[in-house]
């Protein structure tokens, strides 16, 4: 009886501790979100979203930074998605179990652990200087793609792994090659997982500052980029500049810029999650 009582107490404490941790996460996320919205909302206006910065960036808008971040993120997707998905397919569907595959996996998890500023230096050395791309959208997108690759590879591999192997067997047994099995059966079924994981990786890339510091971002530029070789203003770097370099600016434009960044990333994530749940309802295992 005593033992049972003690077990119950332990159980109650366990529920309390794990529950409190979960509640803390919700509270932190909620606070962050609400705080950014409350501080940033007053700055948001049509002019803020569509004008260039004026008066030493104390007034006007942030359009060049929005365009720059969009361009960099799309460029990142263009490089990281095909390579990452292809590598994920190789690892999940083709790679033989052995030393070389272990080496690839080790390389991927190491890539995921490299600090983003190191990617910045790497991008500066390889893309900006060695390949002579200069400080540009191209160099920045390539650098961010390196940073995002491990996320996309892992997401792809995980999504493919969840597809039941008897579907692959059924396709192979019908005289389909492995490749046909992958692109007609396995990939379509895994697409929702791949897309969600990839968007998560890309939204992280959209908010990165360090990797683009030396490879793409500029302090101030009124003109919109006219080619992939142009350097650009970007939202996260603009927040840093406003917060540290511009004296006498109203605080709400910093929070307004943060709100635009967070809002954009959230909108894309929500869209991806919605699409995924629609797909889930269509296909159930």
């Amino acid at each position: 009886m005593n033992r049972i009582k003690r077990a119950r107490t332990v159980q109650t404490v366990a529920v309390a501790i794990t529950g409190a941790a979960a509640a803390f996460i919700i509270a932190a996320a909620l606070f962050l979100f609400v705080y950014i919205v409350v501080r940033g909302a007053p700055a948001i206006s049509w002019e803020f979203l569509t004008d260039v910065p004026r008066k030493q960036m104390k007034e006007g808008g942030i359009l060049p930074a929005i365009v720059g971040t969009l361009a960099l993120t799309l460029g990142t997707a263009a490089f990281a998605l095909p390579i990452g998905v292809a590598a994920g397919i190789y690892l999940s569907e083709y790679a033989p179990r052995g030393r070389s595959t272990r080496l690839i996996r080790l390389a991927i998890s190491n890539m995921a652990g490299v600090p983003s500023i190191v990617y910045g230096l790497f991008g500066l050395a390889l893309f900006v200087i060695l390949l002579d791309l200069g400080k540009s959208i191209l160099a920045g997108a390539l650098t961010l793609a390196c940073l995002t690759l491990p996320v996309i590879i892992t997401a792809t591999e995980e999504a493919l792994r969840q597809i039941p192997s008897d579907l692959r067997q059924a396709s192979l047994a019908l005289g389909a090659t492995r490749w046909r099995t992958i692109y007609r059966i396995v990939l379509p079924a895994a697409a929702p997982g791949i897309v969600t994981g990839s968007i998560l990786g890309l939204s992280r890339a959209a908010g990165e500052t360090a990797p683009i510091l030396f490879t793409a971002a500029v302090y101030y530029k009124r003109q919109m980029p006219d080619s992939v070789f142009a350097d650009v203003m970007v939202l996260p770097y603009h927040i840093f500049i406003l917060a540290t370099q511009v004296t006498g600016r109203p605080d709400d434009i910093i929070w307004g810029t943060a709100l635009v960044l967070v809002g954009g990333v959230t909108a894309i994530s929500v869209a991806a999650a919605t699409w995924r749940s629609i797909q889930r309802r269509k296909v159930r295992w």
């Binding site: 039941p164 008897d166 579907l167 067997q169 059924a170 396709s171 192979l172 047994a173 019908l174 005289g175 389909a176 090659t177 059966i185 379509p188 079924a189 296909v283």
Partner: peptide
């Protein structure tokens, strides 16, 4: 083997239709 499998079909233990 790909050609063989067009001549020798298989039905599995658990129904496994494609999605």
């Amino acid at each position: 083997p790909v050609e063989l499998r067009t001549k020798v079909g298989q039905v599995f233990q658990k129904p496994n239709p494609f999605p």
